[in-house]
């Protein structure tokens, strides 16, 4: 296989994922409605009681990019990461569905190396999620969420990395889930704990004021670092710690996903494809 053929294969996978996304417009709108409901109702409602300020004892020039700001601005990054989290899980759901319906076989019998096929599928999903995020950011302008122009550019690599990490997690889960019906468990045991035990809705120092254990749990939650990476980059800054965390978790989830779809070792071996 030549490099050109690898490119053509990747292009085909992106083409298919984009078309599926285009034809499933309801998926696009529901992906937008979810964070907008949080922004328009939850954030506005909680604005007055959940002001986000710097933690006690920190100087006024404390570097957190969104301290002393309205709550809607604070949760914007969390909602962007939420779009990517749901997109990752949606892709994983569609992989379980494809496997049950049989169309996953078309992909898996391609002569290209399976890790390449899986990563291409993952990348295609991430590109779709970045489009969703920018659609959200445009609508969010009505709530005065206006990051600097530099932020719109700097957030792209952050979205790419966080989207890959969450997509790889979804892909790993899809290799381990036996039936479509079991996917509801993912909502309860993965999506909700990941989202709520993170800095998406409240800063970690607020959590620490209430529970030290929960604080540590949230600190190691990969979703927290996806949120922080997006939040900082949206304001033209780099959160190095979160960048490292996201890269490490991306590598772990990717290895697990590739292992999961390995025909000789992974979970896929034990079930009907």
């Amino acid at each position: 296989m030549t490099l050109l053929q690898f490119y053509l294969c990747f292009k085909g996978i992106v083409f298919r994922e984009s078309l599926r996304f285009f034809y499933q417009r309801a998926r696009f709108f529901s992906a937008l409605v979810r964070p907008l409901v949080w922004l328009a109702i939850f954030a506005v409602g909680f604005r007055s009681i959940l002001g986000v300020s710097r933690p006690l004892g920190q100087p006024e020039e404390w570097p957190y990019p969104v301290s002393l700001i309205p709550y809607e601005l604070y949760i914007a990054a969390g909602l962007i990461a939420m779009i990517q989290l749901f997109n990752g899980m949606q892709s994983s759901l569609s992989m379980v569905y494809d496997r049950e319906m049989g169309s996953m076989r078309t992909l898996l019998v391609s002569p290209f190396p399976r890790p390449f096929l899986l990563i291409s599928k993952l990348l295609a999903g991430v590109l779709v999620s970045i489009l969703q995020v920018f659609a959200f950011l445009i609508i969010a302008l009505f709530w005065d969420i206006e990051p600097p122009i530099k932020g719109y550019l700097m957030v792209i690599p952050a979205l790419f990395l966080s989207g890959m990490m969450l997509g790889a997690l979804g892909m790993f889960l899809s290799s381990a889930i036996k039936q479509l019906e079991n996917f509801a468990g993912v909502m309860n045991f993965v999506i909700f704990p990941m989202f709520f035990a993170s800095s998406a809705l409240y800063p970690l120092w607020k959590i620490r004021e209430s529970s030290e254990i929960l604080f540590y749990f949230c600190s190691y939650n990969p979703f927290t670092h996806a949120v922080e990476l997006i939040r900082f980059s949206l304001y033209g800054q780099l959160n190095e710690k979160s960048l490292v965390f996201v890269c490490v978790f991306l590598a772990i989830f990717l290895i697990l996903a590739i292992y999961g779809y390995d025909p000789s070792r992974g979970f896929i071996r034990k079930k009907k494809i």
Binding site: M1, G12, T106, F112
Partner: peptide, 9 residues
């Protein structure tokens, strides 16, 4: 076309 691309066409 999708299938052909999976074979590098």
């Amino acid at each position: 076309y999708y299938h052909a691309s999976l074979h590098g066409m």
